[in-house]
């Protein structure tokens, strides 16, 4: 029967109410997990705090595995859900830029909103930066319009690209994530011994 809105189970008027409710839940989880602090977030790159890795990868594997079960029980029609289109070149370049922005800014867009909510000026400045960045992008768009639209592979899934069934990916991600969770537990302990000034 799902997804509910595309299948007409929920009238479109409720769309924005649902958006706010889901957003509140999203913001709550982000903040409560500690993503409103940029030093918590970047800890993952220096080995002193792996909260990002833990929350993010737990979420990915839970959602992946859950989606497969939803599909199996017939609750959701996987053919009707939105699959992010893949633009190979632009996505790789964009992600490298985002990675650099991530290590400099210490936030990603969603977490910066929650940082503003609890009064972090750096979160506010980051969001202003986001705004400026997108503005710069939009204004200079004609310069790289061709590149922006290049490498379009369509709305492809991992299965479409590799021919391997989705459950294998779910299993592989779960394996990698769980191994990472156990591995980082020890790394974190060792790194934290040498850092005094950071309050965890």
């Amino acid at each position: 029967m799902g997804p509910l809105i595309p299948n007409g189970f929920i009238p479109g008027d409720w769309n924005f109410v649902i958006a706010i409710l889901l957003g509140i839940a999203f913001g709550f989880i982000l903040e409560a997990s500690g993503f409103s602090s940029s030093r918590n977030i970047t800890g993952v790159f220096y080995g002193y705090n792996f909260v990002v890795l833990r929350v993010f990868f737990t979420a990915v594997i839970v959602a992946m595995v859950g989606l497969l079960y939803f599909d199996y029980f017939g609750w959701i029609d996987l053919a009707k859900i939105f699959i992010l289109p893949t633009y190979l070149g632009p996505m790789l370049v964009g992600s490298v830029i985002m990675g650099l922005g991530f290590i400099l800014g210490g936030f990603c867009p969603g977490t910066s909103f929650t940082a503003i909510a609890i009064g972090k000026i750096d979160g506010l400045v980051f969001t202003v930066g986001l705004y400026l960045g997108i503005f710069i992008f939009a204004e200079s768009f004609p310069l790289f319009a061709d590149f922006y639209n290049s490498g379009n592979m369509g709305n492809v899934t991992l299965t479409d690209v590799t021919g391997i069934a989705a459950p294998w990916f779910a299993l592989a991600f779960t394996f990698i994530a769980l191994a990472a969770f156990w591995g980082t537990m020890f790394i974190e302990k060792r790194v934290r011994k040498n850092i005094k000034e950071y309050k965890f």
Binding site: F102, I103, G129, I134, V156
Partner: peptide, 29 residues
């Protein structure tokens, strides 16, 4: 960082929550 993230997110068709989290969860390449 914000400026870079803003530019990158347009090329990447989404940011960490839209593309990386939700995209990966739906098995999008």
């Amino acid at each position: 960082g914000g400026v870079l993230f803003g530019i990158g997110s347009q090329f990447g068709r989404g940011c960490t929550s839209g593309a990386a989290l939700s995209g990966s969860a739906t098995f999008a390449f």
